[in-house]
Design a protein around this nucleic acid. Structure first.
Lengths: 247, 247
DNA sequence: TTGACAACCCGTACATCGTACATCTAACGT
DNA sequence: ACGTTAGATGTACGATGTACGGGTTGTCAA
């Protein structure tokens, strides 16, 4: 990484979504799509840190720097990957009309997709303006339609939900990485953790309790619990007044 | 990064928190603390990607690889940084007794600390078993004490809250990074975004609305909104401390 | 048919990274 | 006095992202 680079001499906001994909003439053997899919496969199999320009190129049978014709930086690639992942989330389209059920479904599908691509939350990228992301936002919005709320409130609701989903996914990812970092299988890792807790319990009950707490954090039940809290809270706020104010 | 490395031939779960800091004899000029603080300062000033072993060493006036005596890998360093950041969060200790107010305070302080160290959520590390993190968990637990819930429920509540906080911080960080990536000042960036929205509104009103929505996501008001939702939902689920409001 | 120009691809090169390893120095236990 | 070890360093290796310049092929005007 040769220096920060001023990166934008002309002051253009250079988002990939505002640039058209280069038109396919005849020769091109690559495309943004292929590149993105290959990158995602690599990340799924070997983790995000295994995603390198060279490796993608190699997997595509292309030269090392060929990709730079289609993307202008690795961050661009990340943005493409993010949008693609968002696109994998199954959506209730059209919404059923029951906003709570719809949001719950979206939440579950999102969680499921995130856990198939655990690296997602490590991209450090807010899914931006890509087409798949926009569709996601659009459908989520539509789920709230017959509540007749103002735009601002709807946005806040969905943001809260998404924040929760991101946070949960982050925790899961971090746990998985921690386990991987030790080089143990999941079984070995769990056994060892239990052992550590038992051992700690003898000299430091507080530590043992703390570890127990952390141990059970990822999983179905805590996810459901938090999700229910959020939806319940949203419902409470909408029943009250059109513009809820924090106490 | 020379290969994955099996990393743990003997199958030891090698967490930094289970190893004592090397005892200080006389000569040592470095310490985990100094290293951690230097790393944090670097990250605050120049971003997480500017945190390299060599740069930290240079900043400490030490040789390139001296740090490896104190930490055994860069991931270890991340763990130390995370614990340190958690330690900066102001806590209501002892709790006031009003669990809602206490959790709200913790949430605000956490958010405030995270936004001073935006790189935190990019560590890809779940704050683990470090002393500061344990204290955080301990105090948060104590806030729920006089609700007399079972351990499991309390853990789920705090997890939900923390997930939300992580998610929100992630969004803020991602936005800030996006802006930085364009190389524009915040002012320029906002102007440009507004311009893009206005421009988009002519040909694609849906896109314009979508961008508007995203534009306002980080900020005080959405944070407060989601936080209130969560606390309200928690209250509803415990049907302790009932929300006295017939719609 | 020819030539110019663009689209596309790739090889080389550079700065930088994490860290394994061998080695040096100075304090310590005996 | 002397070996042992804690602490610090230098060198080296395999990677990485990407700037750059030159190649190759297709398209289109003349």
């Amino acid at each position: 990484m040769p220096g920060p680079d001023q990166h934008n001499p002309r002051g253009e906001a250079d988002l990939i979504w505002l640039r058209p994909e280069r038109v396919r003439r005849e020769r091109p053997s690559l495309s943004r799509d292929e590149i993105t899919r290959t990158a995602i496969d690599l990340a799924d199999r070997d983790g995000l840190e295994a995603v390198s320009i060279r490796r993608i190129a190699a997997a595509l049978g292309a030269g090392a720097n060929s990709l730079y014709w289609y993307i202008s930086s690795k961050d661009d690639l990340y943005e493409l990957m993010a949008d693609e992942v968002i696109g994998e989330i199954a959506l209730p389209d059209p919404p059923s009309g029951d906003w709570r059920a719809d949001l719950r479904a979206i939440a579950h599908n999102t969680q499921e997709t995130f856990s198939r691509h655990r690296w997602f939350v490590l991209l450090g990228i807010q899914p931006g303006l890509g087409p798949k992301t926009r569709r996601y936002g659009q459908v989520a919005m539509a789920c709230l339609d017959n509540l007749h709320l103002d735009l601002n409130t709807k946005i806040n609701m969905l943001a809260a939900l998404n924040n929760y989903l991101f946070g949960f996914a982050h925790r899961e990812t971090a746990w998985a990485d921690l386990q991987k970092r030790t080089g143990l299988t999941e079984q070995q890792w769990n056994d060892r953790l239990r052992g550590m807790i038992d051992h700690a319990a003898h000299q430091d009950t507080e530590l043992a309790e703390h570890m127990t707490a952390r141990l059970q954090l990822p999983g179905e039940e805590p996810f459901e619990f938090g999700l229910t809290c959020l939806l319940e809270g949203i419902a409470a706020l909408t029943n009250r007044s059109p513009t809820p104010r924090p106490s």
